[in-house]
């Protein structure tokens, strides 16, 4: 029997809100900066007539940009030595390191410049598994993005692998 890497108080947090709800207005300049930093010059992000010709109401944004639009700015005093922000929402695990395992995205409705998007992230799953390199924890953080018309526009599941 391997010991549990997931303390009972962390297991009890499954389903808990980790972030939000937070509402942000989708800003044209930020979305275009993002697209250009990616190197994605799709005209539907830059040109109103191209977006309309493609069946959109107005200019849209790169698919996963919504998650970056939600980043809450924090003071420099909260930066750790690795450059990440101190964050009180982390789920406590008996592990040395958390790595990105991947992401799953559902895009349900277009996101437009000027939309007011509300994001809420939940701890969706926390499972201990055994792999070739020993036991690890698979953490799923699910974020739902809802627009001003209460339509769910996107859902993301970020998989964290902790060992």
């Amino acid at each position: 029997m391997s010991t549990s890497l997931i303390p009972p108080e962390s297991l009890a947090r499954i389903g808990e809100i980790l972030y939000g709800p937070i509402t942000v207005t989708i800003n044209e300049r930020e979305a275009q900066r993002y697209a250009l930093a990616v190197g994605d010059e799709n005209p539907i992000y830059f040109d109103e007539s191209a977006a309309k010709a493609a069946g959109y109401k107005t200019k849209t944004v790169p698919p996963t940009f919504v998650t970056h639009a939600m980043v809450i700015p924090k003071p420099l005093s909260t930066l750790r030595t690795d450059g990440l922000y101190r964050d009180g929402t982390g789920v406590r695990l008996e592990v040395a390191r958390m790595m990105f395992g991947g992401e799953e995205w559902d895009f349900l409705e277009p996101v437009y410049i000027g939309d007011q998007i509300t994001a809420t992230a939940r701890l969706a799953a926390l499972d201990q598994k055994s792999g070739s390199k020993g036991p690890f924890v698979r953490q799923v953080r699910e974020t739902t993005f809802v627009n001003q018309e209460m339509d769910t526009v996107a859902r993301s599941r970020q998989i964290g692998i902790a060992r």
Partner: peptide, 16 residues
């Protein structure tokens, strides 16, 4: 880029 602007991406799933 391949699908064209009138297409709609519904899901993408990747592993790091």
């Amino acid at each position: 880029d391949w699908a064209g602007p009138a297409s709609r991406l519904l899901n993408i799933t990747w592993q790091n």
